[in-house]
Simulated assay, not measured.
Amino acid sequence: MAQWQDLLKLDSALQSRVQQLYEGRFPREIRHFARSCIESQDWVSAAESENAARTCFQALLDYLEEQWNRSVQENNILEGPDFRRMTDYLMEHFQGQPVNLALIMSDCLNEEKKILSSVTTAQNNVGMPLKWREVNNKVTELKWQISELKKEIKTLDGLNEKLDFFQQTWQSKVEQNIQVAESKVQMVEGECLKQANIITHTKQIVVQRLVNLLNQTAQTVATLTDVELPEWKYRQQLSCIGGPLDTSLGL
């Protein structure tokens, strides 16, 4: 719950970034009113496991049901949040695919942390000149994104390994027992297809983040080489003729 509370304290520009995270993906109403439950779940692990995802999904439904019952007991149905509508939304969109919910929540919570981290970095750099604060903030953000991207790639590798192992193990069982029921075969193939779809969706997210990261890196490098480097060379030249100027290029 602390993370969402911290986001509510941000200025309107940063809150708009949070709003964009959820737009078209997940209702902010649920994020707000179920914040304690959402932040207590391990969505990262749930994104890798159907069983873990279903456990998190059920925990969220149970929480909303509990809040609804409290509204009824307190005669606060009309004034309070519409917990029934939130439950209906979750059932309609994620009952059959709880892993999709886990992917969305893990991604959004991670992006929220980045926004809060950017605020902390900005506060720590108050004493720097404005242009260097901007560059330093960009570099810090890039480092954070690289770290998170490495984690996501590792997660993706794990999903691929699990699917490969499952398919190989199943194929071996089929070869040893050619009388496997057709219904069992269809069920396993359906599960493999579901896992493959999750992997494909995760790949798309990772690739898009990698593209964004490369674009941001190119912009930062351009700032350093096209703007700051010529200024640094000029300061060095002045220093060589006795000018008491700063010749450093470090942040």
Rank of each mutant, 00 (worst) to 15 (best):
E161P: 02
E92N: 06
K173F: 03
S147F: 05
N160G: 10
I115H: 07
K138Y: 00
D88Y: 02
A181R: 04
Q171C: 01
T140S: 15
D164C: 03
K154M: 02
Y89K: 02
E161N: 12
D88V: 15
F166V: 07
Q176L: 14
Q97T: 06
V135P: 00
V185N: 09
N137T: 03
E175D: 07
K113N: 13
P98W: 03
H93S: 07
L149E: 03
R133K: 10
L101T: 08
K162C: 01
G96R: 01
A122Y: 00
L163F: 13
K151G: 07
K173Q: 08
K131R: 11
N160L: 06
L156G: 00
N110L: 08
N124P: 06
L159D: 04
P98H: 07
W170A: 04
V99L: 10
L130G: 02
E134Q: 09
R133W: 07
E152V: 05
V135A: 00
E111M: 12
E148W: 10
E92M: 02
E141F: 07
D107A: 06
N110E: 10
E182R: 03
K151I: 06
S183N: 01
L130V: 15
T120L: 03
V174K: 00
K154W: 10
S118R: 14
E92L: 05
N137D: 09
K150W: 02
L109D: 04
K131H: 08
T169C: 09
E92Y: 09
D107F: 00
E112Q: 13
N137F: 04
T121N: 12
V185G: 03
L142D: 01
Y89F: 15
L159F: 01
K113A: 15
L103C: 13
E134C: 08
K114A: 04
T87A: 08
K154T: 13
E92V: 05
N177T: 05
C108P: 00
N136E: 02
T120I: 06
L159I: 04
V126Q: 11
F166H: 05
N177A: 11
M105K: 00
G127A: 14
K131C: 04
E152L: 11
Q95E: 02
K114I: 08
L103W: 03
Q145G: 06
N160I: 13
S183F: 12
K151D: 12
E161T: 10
I104E: 05
